[in-house]
Design a protein around this nucleic acid. Structure first.
Length: 494
RNA sequence: GGCGCUAUGGUGCAACGGUUAGCACGCGGCCCUUUCAAGGCUGAAAUACGGGUUCGAUUCCCGUUAGCGCUACCA
C-alpha cells in the first residue's frame, strides 16, 4: 500500500489578469475535493509564456481566490522559475528515443481556419488522402543521423517533439467521462520544448504534476482532448498518470464561451457588485455538480461534506445571473445576522456612511437594523441605496415615491399633525407609533394606509422600506419627528 | 476539414429500463398586506430528430442535426 492515500490536487491558473468564473469554479471543485478528502491543494501559476508573465496579474488572481474563500496548502509555485526541470525532462525524453529534434520553422498561427480546399476534400481516391496529409509528421522525425548533423551544423534552432507511436491506443481514466481510449494515429507529433528552450504547456504541466505528486487532476473539459498527449509524456517519463476529472465548461447565455459580451466574467466584479462569497460558492458548486437529490441551498460545510466527483455532470452549463442573485438573497437573509454584519459594514464604509459606534456601543442597534432591512435585499449595495436613510440623514425623496404617495395636497398638513402626535409620545415603540398614526389618520378622515405610505416617503425617502412602525423604532423618535417636519417644509415650499 | 465530448421546460439540476418525468431560478395568477420584499398556494413550460434493442425507453445501441472542445514552437 502507498504510504499516504490522501489526494493531492492543484489549481493551475495562467496569469491573464483576473480570475474568470470558469477558473473560479475549477478552483472551487479542487478545493471542495481536497477538503472532503482531507487532501492537499496546491496553487501553481502557469506562466511559461514570458510575454504575459506579470506579477501584478498574478496578484489579482490571489485576491479573487481569497475573496472566494479558496485557500491552498502549498504554493504558489511559478512555472517561470522551474525551467530547468522542464528542459531536463525534454532532454530525457529525447535521449530515450521517445522524442526527436525538429529543425522546422514554427508554423504561423493559421487563425483557426482548418478547412481544406473543397476539391481536395472530395478527392478520396488519392493515395495520400486528406487525413494522411493532415497528420503528416514533421520530416525531421525520420531523418538520418547525417541529415540531422547537417541541420545542426547549419545552426538551425532545435525544438524537441514527441515521437508519437504510429499504432496502438492511449488510455486513461477520467472520473467524470469514464475510461478513455484514443488512437495514437490521431495524435500528432507535438512540441515538448520550443526552439527557445521554453517548454510547452503539455510538457510543463506533466513535469509539475509528477514533481508535485498530484493524484487527481480536476480541470476544465477543454483539456480533455489534449490529455492523451500528456499521458504519453507520463509514460515516456516512466511515471504513472493520475486520475483525471474533466469538468464541463461554463458558457454564456447564447451557449458560446463566456466572454465580456455576456456581462461580468471576473470574480472580482461580482465581489464589487455586492455578492457574498458564500452565495457565489454555493451557486458555482451547483454549476456542473449536484448531490443527486434536489438540494440547492447548501452552506459551505455541507458542500464540503457532500462533494464528490461522481456527481459532476458532463454537459456544459450556462451562467445564469438571475439564479446567482437568488442565492445571494438567500445568504443575505437566512444566516444569523451576525454573519453578514461585516459585509454590510464594509459596504457602508465604501459609501462613506459608516460610524464607529455601530461596531461598539451601538452594535445591537446596528444588528437589529440590518436584520430589519435584509429581507428585502438582493445585493449588498441595497444597504446604501434604498436603505440609505437608515444610516444617514442625508437622503433625498425619490421622485416616483413622491408621485405615488404625496399627490394629495392634504399630505403636508397630515404629516405635520403626525409629527406633533409622535413628538408627544412618552414611550417610543412599535405599538405606540402604530396607535398614534392611526389616530391621526382617523382624525383626518383618511385610511391609515394613505398616511402610512406618505410617512414612509417622509422618513426614508422611498416607497420601498421595511414595515413602517419597525422603521420608526429603528430610526428613533427625534429623527422621525425631525424628518416629518422636514418633509412638511419641503411640501410647503413647492 | 479531422478527432472527441454533449443533448430533459428559457436556465441549473433529478429521474441512472417501468414515475401522472421531480426540484429550484425565472415568468404568470391567488393569498397575506402598510409600500416593497419575504412566505404560502398555484399555473404555463422539457425528454432535439430518425431508426433499432426490449414486454416496456428520458434512460441502452446506431445514424442525423445542433452546440461545444481540441486540432499552436497558447495555456
Amino acid at each position: 500500500m502507498p504510504v499516504s492515500t490522501k489526494p493531492r490536487v492543484r489549481f493551475a491558473p495562467s496569469p491573464t489578469g483576473y480570475l474568470h468564473v470558469g477558473g473560479a469554479r475549477t478552483a472551487l471543485f479542487n478545493w471542495l475535493f481536497a477538503k472532503h478528502e482531507g487532501g492537499t491543494l496546491i496553487l501553481r501559476v502557469e506562466d511559461t509564456d514570458v510575454e504575459r508573465n506579470k506579477p501584478e496579474l498574478v496578484d489579482g488572481i490571489l485576491v479573487a481566490l481569497k475573496w472566494l474563500g479558496v485557500d491552498w496548502d502549498e504554493g504558489p509555485f511559478f512555472q517561470s522559475q522551474r525551467g530547468e526541470m522542464y528542459r531536463a525532462a525534454a532532454e530525457k525524453i529525447f535521449a530515450s528515443g521517445a522524442g526527436y529534434a525538429c529543425y522546422c520553422k514554427p508554423a504561423a498561427y493559421a487563425g483557426g481556419d482548418y478547412s481544406a480546399p473543397k476539391d481536395e476534400v472530395e478527392d478520396e481516391g488519392d493515395a495520400e488522402g486528406p487525413k494522411a496529409a493532415k497528420l503528416a509528421a514533421c520530416p525531421c522525425r525520420d531523418m538520418s543521423a547525417d541529415q540531422l548533423a547537417a541541420k545542426e551544423k547549419e545552426g538551425l534552432p532545435r525544438a524537441i517533439r514527441f515521437k508519437t507511436p504510429r499504432t496502438g491506443v492511449t488510455t486513461f481514466e477520467d472520473a467524470v467521462f469514464g475510461p478513455r481510449e484514443v488512437q495514437n494515429g490521431d495524435i500528432e507529433d507535438f512540441v515538448l520544448l520550443r526552439s527557445s528552450g521554453v517548454p510547452t504547456y503539455q510538457l510543463s504541466v506533466v513535469v509539475d504534476d509528477i514533481d508535485m505528486r498530484i493524484t487527481h487532476i480536476i480541470r476544465g473539459a477543454d483539456h480533455l482532448s489534449n490529455t492523451p498527449k500528456q499521458v504519453l509524456i507520463y509514460h515516456a517519463l516512466g511515471a504513472q498518470p493520475p486520475i483525471f476529472a474533466h469538468v464541463p465548461l461554463i458558457l454564456g447565455a447564447d451557449r458560446t464561451r463566456l466572454s465580456k459580451r455576456h456581462g461580468a466574467t471576473s470574480v472580482g466584479s461580482y465581489a464589487d457588485e455586492g455578492f457574498l462569497p458564500e452565495a457565489f460558492r454555493n451557486f458555482l458548486a451547483l454549476l456542473g455538480w449536484s448531490t443527486g437529490d434536489d438540494s440547492e441551498y447548501m452552506r459551505t460545510p455541507e458542500l464540503v461534506e457532500r462533494f464528490s466527483l461522481s456527481g459532476v455532470s458532463r454537459t456544459n452549463a450556462i451562467f445564469d445571473r438571475a439564479k446567482l442573485e437568488w442565492y445571494n438573497t438567500q445568504y443575505l437573509q437566512k444566516p444569523p445576522v451576525e454573519e453578514i454584519l461585516p459585509f454590510v459594514e464594509a459596504e457602508l464604509k465604501k459609501a462613506g456612511l459608516w460610524q464607529d459606534a455601530w461596531g461598539s456601543s451601538e452594535q445591537a442597534w446596528f444588528a437589529r437594523t440590518v436584520d430589519l432591512i435584509r429581507p428585502r435585499t438582493r445585493l449588498l449595495g441595497d444597504f446604501t441605496t434604498w436603505a440609505r436613510a437608515f444610516f444617514t440623514d442625508d437622503f433625498t425623496y425619490d421622485v416616483e415615491a413622491r408621485e405615488k404617495f404625496w399627490k394629495d395636497e392634504k399630505i403636508a398638513g397630515m404629516l405635520g399633525k403626525l409629527a406633533d402626535a409622535l413628538a408627544a409620545l412618552p414611550e417610543w415603540n412599535h405599538d405606540a407609533c402604530d396607535a398614534a398614526s392611526r389616530a391621526v389618520a382617523a382624525a383626518e378622515g383618511v385610511k391609515a394606509g394613505v398616511l402610512i405610505n406618505a410617512t414612509r416617503v417622509a422618513i426614508v425617502g422611498r416607497a420601498v422600506a421595511p414595515p413602517l412602525f419597525d422603521t420608526m423604532v429603528a430610526l428613533s423618535q427625534d429623527r422621525v419627528v425631525a424628518r416629518l417636519q422636514r418633509a412638511v417644509a419641503f411640501l410647503n415650499s413647492r
